[in-house]
Design a binder for these strands. Structure first.
Lengths: 208, 208
DNA sequence: GTTTAATTTAAACAAGTGTTTAATTTTGCA
DNA sequence: TGCAAAATTAAACACTTGTTTAAATTAAAC
């Protein structure tokens, strides 16, 4: 598995992400990408092999850093609750910076048609879940977290809450009076993040 | 505007809905549709004019009945709250029977690329909003509903809640222990519908 | 500076796309 | 039965698709 991408490859991936997010995977042609990235059509096949493999590289590229960040987080000396808070903050920031690719992962690849690179993405999810599991079990050992919690459901809760907010953006823009892009993003990084943190904390910690 | 569709046209639309929902609009070719519907490729252009117009017809066909149902509902003699309850039940049932087309409307047409038939769909939404407005203002006149409510936001709330539940189906299947398709649909028609009804009621009626 | 490898290119490939045409069959009506 | 309209067909249209090829250019290594 080679993950050393040169400048040209990264440039192609960035253009691809934008166009995929705009027009969908099927709606975007290699010629669209090569035109936007100002390269020859053959370069995509030369560097990535195929359009499908380009998508796979894009997914790997955009989700690769997360794994290392989680490993770093595990080794930090923090109280379990604070560690979870930081994890959620990390997730939300990541998702908010990669709207394009996560939109594709959730709606393009959710269809029955494409099941190819689901494997490589499922590997990443497994690794992330493993990191989360370590943090939770650390908290359980310290007697801070409940032991009857289903760890597999924490990630869906964290991501699900964020996606619902992001998907219904026009709706929330109105009801919350968030008129600018800045206001909206600020709301995500403060109130929404706090809400998710409190939800997960309530799920994990003992209650009277 | 001709809405008299013959058997063949309806057959084509039904096949198109299934395939669009499965593989997306761009991912489905006219030849895919004609093959599945066992007709000649030219028939789609013959009956609908183009692939885009086929989609437009599909949207109109699948959303047409709703307007009449709402008009009938308005004329029913029911208390305002009961009318709203019935309206929500009607919406949820509709959405649940037309998963395919609403998936397309929300994720295929939400992209920047296609803005063509958004007009015909926006007409339907306007008509539905008009019906809702009548019901709400009736309740306001009777002193049951608050007068400072933004009617335009009721539909997003009703639909948004349902869609979030349906989009994250694998998630809720697990946490709610809904193992069969029947159990899942039953939950939608009982607990979820009730939740939406209570949410809207709380929003509309005065509280101490 | 020559040679080997990596990069980039234009062109072509076969297959698939939406749509149209023109001929044929089927249908409905006088 | 005859005739005009509608329905259906196979074929072709021009264009786009992802991918490959083979030549040209650039870069690196000796």
């Amino acid at each position: 598995m080679e993950n050393d991408l040169n400048e040209k490859q990264i440039q192609i991936l960035q253009v691809a992400e934008t166009l995929f997010a705009e027009k969908g995977f099927d709606g975007t042609s290699i010629r669209d990408i090569s035109k936007e990235a100002k390269i020859n059509v053959a370069m995509v096949s030369y560097y990535f092999g195929s359009k499908e493999k380009l998508l796979e590289s894009l997914v790997l590229y955009k989700t690769s850093g997360l794994k290392e960040l989680l490993i770093d987080l595990i080794e930090e000396e923090l109280e379990p609750v604070q560690k979870i808070y930081k994890l959620i903050d990390l997730y939300v920031n990541r998702l908010n910076c990669n709207k394009g690719i996560y939109r594709i992962l959730h709606f393009e690849l959710a269809s029955k048609k494409r099941v190819l690179e689901l494997e490589s993405f499922s590997d990443i999810k497994k690794a992330n879940l493993k990191s989360l599991e370590i943090i939770i079990k650390e908290g359980q050992a310290k007697g801070v977290f409940r032991k009857d919690v289903t760890i597999e459901l924490l990630t869906p809760t964290i991501l699900g809450t964020y996606f619902h907010f992001q998907m219904n953006k026009p709706f929330f823009e109105v009801i919350l009076g968030l008129n600018t892009e800045e206001e909206y993003n600020n709301y995500i990084h403060t109130t929404l993040t706090m809400h998710i943190q409190q939800t997960i904390k309530a799920l994990l910690t003992y209650e009277s």
